[in-house]
Design a protein around this nucleic acid. Structure first.
Lengths: 229, 229
DNA sequence: CCATGTCCTAATGTTGACATTGACTAGCGG
DNA sequence: CCGCTAGTCAATGTCAACATTAGGACATGG
């Protein structure tokens, strides 16, 4: 089990500049500073981050593995552009992972963790009520799923999720740019349903719903994307 | 569809030294040159590969993402050691992926591709008959699954597989070291069954069998590992 | 006017030197 | 004799200079 709800003390890991650089660039992409399709020049980044090109280079390699950027030999790195087939691919993988994660989480965790998730959903509802920025909602949405993968207790499963998480985040970002009213309307209910199923431990139904939850989101997204362009 | 069986002309991609280095080290691990737990020193590798430390470093980062090696801040890189819980984790993820991959492959491909897979299984049988090295069998086994993921047409699914493939390979390697008679006996039959199901396009059964196929392999492996130590 | 070949430039790919870190060992004090 | 501390060293983390490449501008020939 996790050490404690308060003071989630975790190894004060010393990280290299490469990871730091990766985080900064990732953040910049999510806040919209770098547009999809935009070039990321190593020298520019190195200058603005105040580190050497080597560190930036290593960081970009990390982001490339996350699918957030794409690099070509001697042609540089640019922010991945989201297309409908991309969404289908990523969400097919995500649906498979979420299915397993939900089941594993349900089997391992107890009331305490579900309450925790409930509070997170409450926060989402509250943020909607006070009309907060949609990017804030997105972060909460992603965090919700983060927690489920963590609760699964499967490190590799979490890694697989982290490998596509950034792309999912990017997709959601694109989605809300196209029109986010629909999203606001259903986000809370859908997540509440998931928590309820996790709590009840109806594993078969849970597997099905978790998978379908992702699939339907993927469909909506793919449609919006197809219409939008 | 693929361009042609002969002359599979594909973009002549020029790769950097880093990828080259990663391949060489990976190969060295699979052939047993570097034992699990063994340290991989950047300077040594750089010297023996004839490239600079930077390239080696980048290559090791790739292998780290594959879970084949583990790096710690300022403490170096070493070959991952296989433990029973690791197997469970990886195989839980693999089972989920294989399920999706098998279904997608069945939906997209036709007789031509199944014949291709059949030939691969024939090769496996032939290699067993002439008493070939077990590592050779392993390579064929892994390639079989590689092809299914390729046939799925889902790039992200393939990537997710590639992210754990090396670990699976490492596990199999450990398995045959512990005793490979059993493996020789069932490998061919199991894969023949899969091809048959793919061909028939019985999607529901296929999903179940593909998943179970992986799960059972994982169980066997976990048991052997638990006994072995 | 178009196709082809050449040169130039701006970016990435690669490298070896330098800075920093963590483990080990010897010396000291209790 | 044991525990602690400081010094040493070998390894990794970081950096800036150099080499290589892709793509476009330009000129040339058909």
């Amino acid at each position: 089990m996790e050490p404690s709800p308060l003071a989630p003390i975790r190894r004060a890991e010393r990280r290299g500049l490469a990871d730091e650089a990766a985080d900064r660039v990732r953040e910049a992409i999510f806040t919209g500073l770098f547009q999809p399709g935009g070039a990321l020049r190593e020298v520019e980044l190195a200058a603005s981050l105040g580190v050497s090109r080597g560190a930036v280079r290593e960081g970009l390699a990390v982001l490339a593995r996350e699918g957030l950027v794409q690099s070509e030999w001697h042609r540089g790195t640019r922010v991945t552009e989201v297309t409908a087939p991309d969404v289908e691919e990523v969400y097919a993988v995500r649906a498979a992972l979420e299915r397993v994660a939900a089941r594993a989480a349900a089997e391992r965790s107890g009331a305490f963790e579900w309450d925790d998730l409930d509070r997170l959903v409450d926060t989402m509802a509250a943020e909607i009520a006070r009309g907060a920025d949609v990017t804030r909602l997105l972060a909460l949405d992603v965090e919700f799923h983060d927690r489920i993968y963590r609760l699964s207790g499967n490190r590799r499963l979490l890694d697989a999720w982290l490998a596509i998480r950034s792309q999912v985040h990017l997709f959601l970002l694109t989605r809300v740019r196209l029109g986010h009213e629909q999203y606001r309307g259903i986000v809370v209910d859908e997540h509440r349903e998931l928590v309820a199923l996790l709590r009840v431990k109806d594993l078969t139904t849970l597997e099905r719903v978790a998978e379908e939850h992702v699939r339907s989101a993927g469909r909506v997204l793919a449609e919006q994307l197809a219409d939008g362009r």
